[in-house]
Write a protein that binds this DNA or RNA. Structure first.
Lengths: 229, 229
DNA sequence: TAAGCATTGTGTAAAATGAACACTTAGCTG
DNA sequence: CAGCTAAGTGTTCATTTTACACAATGCTTA
């Protein structure tokens, strides 16, 4: 601990807003704080930056330390600096947002954490510190990004149906979409590979499964085209 | 100085990317550094954050101290953290971008500055530190913003012609636009007030001048509409 | 003072895109 | 095998975007 704290930049922290998608709901990953300030409250996973790492690296490390979540989409959102945002001393915090498929990640509380859990974004959450503000900003960024980059796939399993995908978009953007128009548009980008596999264990016609083709997407970007849902 | 440095957060700085528009060119405000590291090179105006201020406040103060520029549009862009970005020690820097009408601001070098000057964005500029990267990111943000918010007006005098406005957009986005279509679109938002005033001192038909109507824009936003150029 | 020059200011038609809309197919369940 | 549930599929109409050219204005200068 003392060795670790020697390398910490004590006035600079990271907070991660981790989104997941499960049961047709957008979810948020929170950790239960083991120590004060705000002991026992559910907060964004966070921690201090080390002198030896960049912010991006810190975000990856901190998220893994807090929750065991790794190998995911991470993007810097904003840096928060209200003078009293952290009660003990002046700490400035860089917020990241992350997207994962909850099914693919086994949650495990970290050192300063007594629990890790998914919360539905819909329910009212009581955030400590300025985490409500950070969350709102990240959510706004997510909504913007999801329209202009195909990042929605980060939230889904590798193989998914078009209905799942549409639900995801509807859920994030909080609006209903027309099934036929949605399919036409999303398929028109040629970024989805139709598989010869179908949903299993459903009591109705099984949906065809698709895979996201990141190479085709890269191609598309390289040609200067823009994804726009 | 010692009093000032006592309040400084020595590992956290601000860098400002200040854009201007003059002679139909997009310009960038740089300062000449009085001291090492990178003494005498032209760099982004920057400085350290004080313990008593937020980042937004710091950006305003630092820009004024460096160049005498004040009362302007400022927006946080990104936080840069490469470990060796500053040669003397680990410093993380929060980048802001700003827009001004150069005509409206008298430049004056600040304490650690021997000169302040506008550079054309087109010319190759040799930046010190990671300022090239910061600049690129700010430029990208400007291009994005200018399409989705009517911030272009920040770069023009209060009264301007539609041709001026179009030139500004063409210059920032680096693409040509159709005169008639541009006018139709921009006027359709009802955010421009046509004045009974015309260009003066030109050797051809004088263009009508317009004013940006920020109240009408606010109205427009309040109704949930989106500006989209 | 008329001809020339430079730039402003204006409308329409064709093309492309986006929005609305309903029924058949498939596969399981009881 | 009847009934249920969700998947899958095209066309039409409305809107938006694009392409495009010439007359009006006001100064300059011969």
């Amino acid at each position: 601990m003392s060795q670790v704290s020697k390398q910490m930049i004590k006035n600079l922290s990271i907070d991660c807003v981790v989104f997941g998608f499960e049961n047709n709901k957008l979810e948020l990953l929170l950790i239960k704080r083991k120590s004060n300030p705000s002991k026992d409250s559910w907060a964004l996973p966070g921690g201090f930056v080390l002198k030896t790492e960049t912010l991006d690296e810190a975000a990856v490390r901190i998220l893994e330390e807090n929750s065991n979540v790794k190998n995911i989409y991470l993007e810097q959102v904003h840096t928060f600096s209200r003078i009293d945002r952290f009660p003990l001393r002046r700490v400035i915090s860089v917020a990241y947002f992350a997207l994962i498929d909850p099914e693919n990640h086994f949650l495990k509380p970290g050192v300063d954490t007594t629990d890790v859990k998914w919360f539905q974004v819909n329910e009212k959450i009581e955030f400590p510190f300025d985490h409500a503000e950070i969350f709102q900003r990240a959510l706004k960024r997510l909504r913007q990004r999801v329209r202009t980059k195909p990042i929605g796939f980060e939230l889904l399993p590798e193989k998914f149906s078009l209905t799942q995908l549409q639900n995801l978009y509807e859920c994030i953007l909080d609006e209903n979409m027309d099934k036929r128009n949605f399919r036409k548009r999303i398929l028109s980008y040629n970024m989805l590979i139709p598989l010869d596999e179908y949903q299993e264990g459903v009591a109705h016609r099984a949906a065809r499964l698709y895979k996201f083709d990141s190479k085709e997407y890269q191609n598309f970007i390289d040609k200067g085209f823009n994804f726009q849902l």
